[in-house]
């Protein structure tokens, strides 16, 4: 076997093992809940890839997961573990909702859409940069600081919305201007009608390609990866480690902020308090299954989006919480098995 093929196989072992174990545990949990595994898995597939609406919903749910997957993957390549995507999502979405609802109604669509996308990215980036800077400047571990910032972001968003921006009797902002709204794909493709999947989907390949290019083809990306491979060696060879760590977290936070594009501009048309519902944490599983490789995030996000949408289809048979268990199992096993094959690559 050629070395290249062997290394590819080696890298596929961890994700394959994770998925196989998750399937096995899924079987057991379904039996525990008193249902039949073939029936449940059948319903899961039928409710997702079995019809146009299901496919559209999977695509709609995969879009934010690619963004939060990138939010974890980019800092991970710099040796940082961003578990603050949940708060960065809130920051980005609130910014999209705030800016979108304050634009002049006559703003041309291109200008309005772009302004909101930039606002979402920048707000997420700022919220993400903070734990990166605290790590680089003070050495405060980003896992603790970013989770504290999740709680703080949610409380702040709740305050801003409840006390200043909310429409009467609701917890959401005013509607964004029509020009800032994205088109639902259902208006072109009759099969997708009824689903919220929208043109934010087209941002996915652009953003993934941009990230892959940045990481693999630019000096910044090279610095970022060298910090990930060993901060002290990078420091010794002249890489400004603290700045790179802040940048990596800012980029990740910005990606998380883009979830707001899909939700605010593509779906609801306003920011709603408490909408994020765990996409930030699911992004961790997406990134780990994809081994933090940008292009692999897409199939990983599709898989978790299938589970997430499928959860609704199987809820009549088994508690849909079963899906959360499977996601976490994939994360733990991918992490545990991934460490082994990574060491094998080092030859130890």
């Amino acid at each position: 076997m050629s070395p290249k093929l062997a290394s590819l196989l080696d890298r596929l072992i961890a994700p394959a093992l994770a998925l196989a174990l998750a399937m096995a545990i899924g079987h057991v949990l379904i039996l525990v809940a008193g249902a039949s595994p073939p029936e449940v898995f059948g319903a899961l597939l039928a409710g997702t890839w079995g019809n146009g609406y299901g496919i559209a919903q999977v695509l709609f749910k995969a879009t934010p997961l690619v963004f939060t997957g990138l939010a974890v993957a980019i800092p991970y390549r710099a040796g940082l573990f961003n578990i603050g995507a949940e708060g960065q999502v809130v920051a980005g979405a609130l910014a999209a909702g705030f800016v979108g609802s304050h634009l002049p109604t006559a703003a041309p669509a291109l200008v309005a859409v772009t302004t909101c996308v930039i606002a979402a990215f920048m707000a997420g980036a700022l919220w993400g940069a903070l734990p990166g800077w605290l790590r680089g400047r003070f050495g405060a571990h980003e896992v603790i600081t970013s989770i504290m910032l999740n709680f703080i972001a949610m409380a702040l968003a709740n305050w801003v919305v409840a006390d200043f921006l909310a429409q009467p009797q609701t917890l959401h902002t005013a509607a964004i201007v029509d020009g800032a709204r994205l088109t639902r794909l259902g208006s072109w493709l009759p099969a997708f009608r009824g689903s919220a999947v929208n043109t934010a989907l087209f941002l996915v390949p652009v953003v993934v390609a941009g990230t892959a290019w940045l990481l693999n083809r630019t000096a910044t990306g090279h610095q970022l990866r060298s910090v990930g491979l060993g901060a002290r060696v990078a420091e010794a060879s002249g890489v400004p480690v603290a700045r790179v760590q802040t940048l990596a977290m800012a980029l990740g936070g910005g990606m998380a902020g883009m979830v707001g594009v899909n939700f605010v501009q593509g779906y609801k048309g306003y920011f709603e308090d408490g909408f994020s519902g765990g996409v930030g944490f699911m992004g961790i599983a997406v990134a780990m299954l994809a081994r933090a490789e940008p292009w692999l995030l897409i199939p990983a996000a599709l898989l978790f989006a299938t589970l997430s949408q499928g959860g609704l289809a199987i809820n009549a048979l088994v508690p849909k919480e079963i899906v959360d268990v499977l996601v976490a199992v994939v994360l733990v096993v991918a992490a545990a098995a991934g460490a082994r094959s990574a060491r094998r690559e080092e030859g130890s």
Binding site: F281, I284, A285, A328, L331, V332, A336
Partner: peptide, 8 residues
């Protein structure tokens, strides 16, 4: 990573 995974 495992710790966060176990929490989830």
């Amino acid at each position: 990573v495992v710790g966060v995974g176990l929490n989830l």
